[in-house]
Design a protein around this nucleic acid. Sequence first.
DNA 1: ATTCTACGTAACAATTTCTTCATTTTAAAT
DNA 2: ATTTAAAATGAAGAAATTGTTACGTAGAAT
Lengths: 225, 225
Amino acid sequence: MAKKTILVVDDEKDLLDLIEYNLKKEGFNVLKAENGEEGIAVAKEGKPDLVLLDIMMPKMDGLEAVEIMRKDDDLKNIPIIFLTARSDEKTEVEGLNKGGDDYITKPISTTKLISRIKAVMRRFDDTQESVNKLDVHDLEIDKDRYIVKRDEEEFQLPRKEFELLFFLASRRGKVLDRQTLLNKVWGDNIYVVDRTVDVHVRKIREKLGDHYIETVKGVGYRFKE
Amino acid sequence: MAKKTILVVDDEKDLLDLIEYNLKKEGFNVLKAENGEEGIAVAKEGKPDLVLLDIMMPKMDGLEAVEIMRKDDDLKNIPIIFLTARSDEKTEVEGLNKGGDDYITKPISTTKLISRIKAVMRRFDDTQESVNKLDVHDLEIDKDRYIVKRDEEEFQLPRKEFELLFFLASRRGKVLDRQTLLNKVWGDNIYVVDRTVDVHVRKIREKLGDHYIETVKGVGYRFKE
DNA sequence: ATTCTACGTAACAATTTCTTCATTTTAAAT
DNA sequence: ATTTAAAATGAAGAAATTGTTACGTAGAAT
């Protein structure tokens, strides 16, 4: 596999250097930036495969940076791992909801950091999570337009239904339990009863037919392969 | 899947009991301790999968406890969730920096608590490599999909049957007695008659044929090498 | 202000899965 | 070959899980 490039954005220079050293030792290319603004510029320039992003930074903080990245066609699909010293749960939720893919609280051991990075990359590699348009069976699921198309017919699903369908479809074949679905589609710190998933599944089936989402009793749901 | 064990450390006995009650209801094994010192001892003994740790305690407080845990090879990788009385934000930050993985302010609803616990556990599971796919004989046993495949044929086994098969297959060649199977597949303190295992074995054989699981009379079952 | 839509929840019906138990069969030991 | 304990089998009832419908609320749209 080609060498992967990681962009590290943090205002603490020492930490930046430390992380760089360790990542390079692991065989990654490393780009650095010291605030959100610079981070975005470097990202556009260097097309990293993953971004390690500190949340608290001068000039432009991590959350703003993500918002901008997610709106940029070149950057929107790059996985992001937040680095945060802040424990504030609101930050956490906000970050993840805005498109962050994992978060890590500082300080963290190098081993853990590397393993998290690899885990996130692996997830991206084999789930096409970074794609905004899925073609599965006879469906075209378009996340840019929030529309599902079959033949010439277009279905406008409500947000949650669409996102649930998209998430399931992007992991075609894999059984996902309700809690995972809630965490990934609804958000990590949102509390709704897990049966809510059932109802949304039913509504999707109502509209598209029930041959896409399979039930695995006692485990969860699965998008048919 | 085997039951997860959670260690709860808090000096308020009432709260301890309440949490224990709720966690058990959720199917966790629960260990308890009333201060940091005891907590560490119990953790070393019981190898919990997660620790709920109060910060303010007599004898040894939560922060000290974490510091010690993070230096102990047996304990360093166990995820920790801090329990903290609202308000003291500084404490929070400090706690997370010292290696906590999440924190929760008391009081908290049971639902929230459980969901946070599961979220943290999932995060940890994700970062760990584990084998989810076994290729044994002519079978492909895929735990991501909860499907057993032979040639082009797919078998959708019910949950317990699948998990039993998976467990046996993952220890192929080894004879496992009924009690072990119950503990590992059903859970540590679930009350079912051990003959139940027989019935499930029979159902697996009915579906896949009886040349995979061997009976060792007087001992247990073994997945054929 | 009123109507609609999306969402979450609750209740209960429908279905599948799990467990037990009684009986028959099998295998080991004498 | 007989005895005996263990395992396989069949069938039924219990338990768990999901499907489905209905309802309340909040916010958007009219």
